[in-house]
Every structure is written in C-alpha cells, then in structure tokens.
C-alpha cells in the first residue's frame, strides 16, 4: 500500500499543480475595515481586484506592500482595486492600523478575526498570498509568497486584465 501511495501522491500533486485557477468565480465576502466600515468583494465587480492576504508578523508581506500601494495609486484610475486582508489573529488587531499608517498605505485594509475569508481563499495560510480577480468577478491567478521582482509579474498580470473592457 505504501509503495502505491507515494507515486499516487506525487502524480496527484503534479496534476493539481498544473490546474489553473482561471475562470473560477471568486467567492464573495463581507469584512470590516479599520474604521469598522464594511467592504464586500461584490461591490467592486466590474473592476480588477487584487486581494492581498498579509499579516503584521510577515516580513515579506511588508516588503511587498509598498509595491501594492504604488500599483493602487497608479492603476486605480484604470480600474484596479487593492484589498488588503489581514490574516492576523484577533490578539494582534491593535497592531494593524499603526503598521498600515507607518507604511503610508491608503488602500482598504480588512480584518478577518474569525479567518472565514482566509480559510476559504488561502487554507494553507501561506503569506503573502495574492488573488487576482478579473472584471467579471472570476479568479484570474493566485500568487503565493513574495520574492523581490515578483511585483513586476504581478503588475503585468494586472495590466493585462485592465486592458480588457468590463463585460
């Protein structure tokens, strides 16, 4: 049995690894932002949405966030919405806004204390984790982790979606 299981797991992993997220509807959600105002994914339909999962304790996330701020500012008028979702546990909630302010971030930051959205989109809780949603509300790509230079690929993917008119 074990001898069978190992290759099965390998094959399954590789097959799944080639699967693409493109075209699957992005599940909607409702979360409160740092002023307790509400944000849903559905209210941004018709725009390209980048959902960025991050946490105050995640170093690569904090390196990536200024790049996202630049994209939000430059590409916002063309139809990009960046939504940051903090994957911090409730115990760290007081740290979130001071960090966001210190980074000069102006795009919406949402809190998910019960990890309902994190569990749905990013069950392994890999951080940072970006989900790119097209104008029709479908997931175009996911980006797991961050290495310097990844923002170039991310930006290219966003601009490609922005070039497509809303359906």
């Amino acid at each position: 049995m074990r001898a069978l299981w190992l290759p099965l797991a390998l094959v399954a992993s590789l097959v799944i690894g080639t699967a693409q997220a493109a075209g699957k509807p992005a599940p909607d959600f409702s979360l409160r932002d740092l002023t307790n105002q509400a944000q849903t994914l559905a209210q941004h339909k018709g725009k390209v949405v980048l959902i960025n999962f991050w946490a105050t304790w995640c170093g690569p996330c904090q390196v990536e966030m200024p790049h996202l701020q630049a994209m939000a500012k430059e590409l916002g008028p063309k139809g990009l919405v960046v939504l940051g979702i903090s994957a911090d546990a409730a115990r760290d909630a007081s740290k979130v806004k001071p960090l966001v302010v210190s980074k000069g971030l102006t795009y919406p930051i949402l809190l998910d204390p019960q990890t309902t959205v994190v569990a749905q989109y990013n069950p392994t809780k890999t951080l940072p984790f970006n989900v790119l949603v097209d104008r029709a509300g479908n997931i175009d790509q996911v980006f797991s982790g961050y290495n310097p230079g990844d923002e170039v690929k991310l930006r290219a993917a966003i601009e490609k979606l922005l070039a497509v008119a809303a359906p």
Partner: peptide, 23 residues
C-alpha cells in the same frame, strides 16, 4: 456564463453601520 457587471459604489456608510451581506 460570466457574471454581469455591477456598478456598485464603495460603501460609504459611517462607522457602525450594519455590515452589508455578501452578494
């Protein structure tokens, strides 16, 4: 089929407003 576009403005309700439901 792709979902139709919905031109819904970002919620501008004051802090403390009821949480709108997911679509």
């Amino acid at each position: 089929p792709p979902a139709p576009p919905v031109d819904t403005p970002v919620d501008a309700s004051p802090a403390g407003a009821a949480l709108p439901e997911a679509e």
